[in-house]
C-alpha cells in the first residue's frame, strides 16, 4: 500500500479522457463517471476481502459470489419486513433499517462463509485445482439454496426516500444513492486502511500476504488468522451485496456470480493480495463498464476484459501485486 509507484494511477485520467472524447457530452460523461465510481466502490468492497484471502493463504474462492447474493437477499428481506421504516419520512428510521439490513447481511454472509470454509475450503488447502472445483460446486449448491429460500423470480428492493432521486450540482444530476454508495465504499476503504496500518492483526495479515511461512516461523498460527480473514472477506462480500442490491434494485439468484466475474477482473487488474490495487482496479472497471454500456451496450463485459488484457500486457502481475509467491 505504501508504495511510491504512481504510474498506474495515470490510467484513471487516461480512461476518463478517452471516454470523454468518445461520449462528447459533458453531462452524460459526468453522470456515467459518477455511476462508475459508485459501482467501483461496491465492487471494491467485495474484491478487497477476496484479494487478501488469496494473498494470505493462496486460496481462491470461486464461490465468493454466493456471499454477495446472501447479503443482497438478506437485506431485501429486512427491507421487506421493515417496509414501514423504509418509506418513513424520518431519516433516523431510514438509517435504522439500513443499519439492520447491513448487520443482517454481514452476519449472514459471515456465518455462511464460516460454514463454507469448514466444509469446502479447509480440506483442500494448498491445492488450487481442488479449490477451484470444490468452490465452484459450492457456488452452484449455494445458488440453488438461495432459489429454494427466496424463489427464482426477481425480488424488488425499494430505496428509502433519502436515497432515491438525485440532486443537481451545476447542471449535472447526481443520484443520491450513488453518492451514498461512494461514501460507504470510501468508509470501507478507510476502515481497512486503519486495520492494516494500526492494528497488529492488520500487520500480521499484510506480512502473511507477503510471506506466510515467515509469519508462522515467528510463532503465529496462520490458520486461525486465515479463518478470521476468510470470514471477514465473506462479510465484506455480504456488505457489497447489500450495496449492489440497492444499486440494482432488483435481485436475481445469479446476482452474486454475475458480479463475481467483475470482482475477478478487478483482482487480476489490481494485483493479487493488494488492497490499494483492488481499489484502483475496481474504479477502473466500474467506470469502464458504465462508459461501455453507454457507448456500445452489447460489449459491456468485453470492455472490461479488454481493459484487463491491456493492463496485463503492461504489467503481467497486475498493477500492484502484493504477494511475492
Amino acid at each position: 500500500m505504501n508504495r511510491s509507484d504512481l504510474m498506474p494511477l495515470a490510467l484513471l485520467p487516461i480512461l476518463m479522457g478517452c471516454a470523454y472524447l468518445a461520449i462528447g457530452n459533458p453531462a452524460a460523461w459526468f453522470t456515467l463517471t459518477i455511476a462508475g465510481v459508485a459501482m467501483g466502490m461496491i465492487i471494491f468492497t467485495v474484491a478487497s476481502g477476496m484479494t487478501i484471502v488469496f494473498g494470505l493463504m493462496d486460496v481462491l474462492n470461486f464461490g465468493q459470489g454466493i456471499f454477495i447474493t446472501v447479503g443482497a437477499y438478506l437485506s431485501a428481506t429486512v427491507f421487506a419486513s421493515l417496509s414501514g421504516y423504509v418509506v418513513s419520512p424520518y431519516l433516523s428510521e431510514n438509517l435504522l433499517v439500513i443499519l439492520v439490513a447491513v448487520v443482517a447481511a454481514v452476519a449472514g454472509a459471515g456465518m455462511s462463509g464460516f460454514l463454507f470454509e469448514r466444509l469446502l475450503v479447509k480440506p483442500v488447502y494448498g491445492d488450487h485445482l481442488m479449490q477451484i472445483l470444490v468452490t465452484t460446486g459450492g457456488l452452484i449448491v449455494g445458488e440453488e439454496i438461495i432459489k429454494i429460500i427466496w424463489g427464482v423470480q426477481q425480488v424488488n428492493v425499494a430505496l428509502p426516500p433519502f436515497l432515491s432521486g438525485a440532486f443537481v450540482i451545476a447542471d449535472v444530476a447526481i443520484e443520491r444513492y450513488r453518492a451514498f454508495a461512494f461514501l460507504a465504499g470510501a468508509l470501507v476503504f478507510f476502515g481497512q486502511y486503519l486495520v492494516f496500518t494500526r492494528t497488529k492483526t492488520g500487520l500480521l495479515i499484510r506480512a502473511g500476504v507477503h510471506d506466510r511461512e515467515m509469519v508462522e516461523a515467528l510463532g503465529y498460527g496462520v490458520r486461525r488468522l486465515f479463518v478470521a480473514t476468510f470470514v471477514s472477506g465473506c462479510a465484506l462480500a455480504g456488505l457489497g451485496g447489500v450495496m449492489w442490491g440497492l444499486y440494482q434494485q432488483t435481485l436475481v439468484p445469479q446476482i452474486g456470480s454475475q458480479m463475481n466475474v467483475l470482482v475477478f477482473i478487478v483482482i487480476i487488474i489490481g494485483g493479487l493480495g493488494s488492497t490499494g490495487g483492488a481499489l484502483l482496479g475496481a474504479i477502473l472497471v466500474g467506470i469502464c463498464a458504465n462508459y461501455a454500456s453507454f457507448i456500445e451496450p452489447k460489449v459491456a463485459l468485453f470492455s472490461n476484459i479488454a481493459l484487463m488484457t491491456m493492463i496485463l500486457l503492461w504489467r503481467p502481475n497486475g498493477l500492484y501485486p502484493a504477494s511475492a509467491r
Binding site: 508504495r3 497488529k200 500487520l203 499484510r206 510471506d211 511461512e213 516461523a217 515467528l218 502484493a322
Partner: peptide, 19 residues
C-alpha cells in the same frame, strides 16, 4: 531464512513488533 524473510512493505519497527 536464506532470503531473510523480511516483510518489505512493513517498516523496520513493524517487522520487529511482529517478532
Amino acid at each position: 531464512p536464506e532470503n531473510m524473510g523480511i516483510f518489505p512493505d512493513l517498516s523496520v519497527k513493524e517487522n520487529m513488533l511482529l517478532a
